[in-house]
Amino acid sequence: MYGKGILKGLSVTWKRFWDTYTEDISWMVRGKKRYNTVEGVAHRSSKNTKGIFTVQYPEEQLIQPEEFRYVPFLVYDEGEEGRKEVRCTSCGICAKVCPPQCIWIVRTNDPSTGRPVPVPTDFYIDMDICMNCGFCAEYCPFDAIKMDHDFDIASYERNVYNLNKLLKPASYYNSIRPENAAREDEARRAKEAAKAAKAEAKTATA
């Protein structure tokens, strides 16, 4: 029969249309909110999603996985009296590995000796050129530069971030990437312990 295929196809559309309302009703009956809740968004991006699929940005947002990456920031540890202990040693690996070359680092030199000091005088990232590849965070040996989760940075101006604007506390980093932070802290502690043990062994032999 001519038109059978069309009807068959329309039955799929009908089912999808119908699913939207049955889903809404079933969520309502269970006393749950399908929209504007984390649970609702999670369900809509799971394998069981049925019916309407849209996530109504900006009222709702997709759930960001831990590895989600957007532009980089610099991590500092909170020292005593609110002192910012910047992890960056201005070694320049991030500037070298950056594909669009949007990282600019001014190294500090000791005024008396002229030798470099392991802390940056200034640190620029041109966020308009950054391609969010994550190489800087991946290859930083000091866990000093990390990728952010905050993506709403559109503006009318060119976004060149300096050191001040790039610095974010380690507690923030731990909150957006708990698993990564825990793993890295562990590795750093193990490294320090090994170093201390080595130094101890050295003093013992001497």
Partner: peptide, 19 residues
């Protein structure tokens, strides 16, 4: 054009940002 190949030398150690 800046240089033949990356990484460009102007970025580090004294990289004042320029557009």
């Amino acid at each position: 054009f800046e240089e033949e190949t990356k990484p460009f030398k102007s970025r580090w150690p004294d990289g004042q940002h320029t557009f």
